[in-house]
Amino acid sequence: MTVVSTIPTEESETETFRTHIVERLQQKELDLPLLPVVANQVLLLSGDPNADSSKLSALIQQDQALAGQILRIANSAACAPRSPIVSLQQAIAWLGMNMLASLAFSVSVQSGVFKVKGYEKEVRTLWHQALATGLYGKEIARRNRHNVENAFLCGILHTIGKPLLIHLILQARGDSPAQPSWAVMDTLIQESHILAGTKLAEAWQLPQPVQEAIRFYPDEAYHQANSPTKGAMITCLADHLATSIVDPSSLDEEALRALPVVQDLNFYPEDMDALLELKDSIQQSVEAFLV
């Protein structure tokens, strides 16, 4: 008698999910998660020349959880308040409009898209990486006189396709109680997150330079980007620097310095010295941003 196993092997499981992902991403009407309402409003507010701090303040106050996070972050060591921050108005005054907008956006995205039951630790790592990329992006942009605000946005959203894929895989799993292993998830994420991110960015109508950074940030692709803000190239290096924080064993200092993007950004060894020196302060800021 032949016994046929009904337990799916890792390979077959991966293939099933892969098929599902490809089908879903090819669909014209892809059922993508909405950009969290607050994040969307913050994004609109950032691009509104008539926006002021009172509008942002009002927006944050509508969302209790967000307001709480803002207070927590304002009191963290990274923000170094002179005295304890006890009110939202005080937090707003201390953090500043731009910082607050960045925080509100990132906290809101994190609470929405970057929230997947059963993979909290892994998703937190993804978010950690995205935040560190945004913060490094700002510093890279500052050094070569590109737009600092744009570099941050490109950085925190460049891998937005990753949590989307997790959602898609979990949808494909249906009612099955068994959770796919992270190894399976990770393989599929690495394969398709750029395509997924591109779709999501289009659906969310993110600014063109951000869409470009999501699509072209990898080493082999940033040359295809043509935005004058150089978001893709900046995000490429920022992503590598962020990886060196999240997973120090993956990329040592020597390997970072030898990356082609370092030369393409025209960074000399002393420029890289300055960026590498920021490691601790960026790590501290990331910890503050993490929900």
Binding site: N98, A141, R142, R145, H146, N147, V148, E149, T229
Partner: peptide, 12 residues
């Protein structure tokens, strides 16, 4: 170069 700019970064 974000809020206080010089003549290099103003065009960013």
């Amino acid at each position: 170069h974000e809020h206080i700019l010089d003549s290099d970064s103003i065009l960013s």
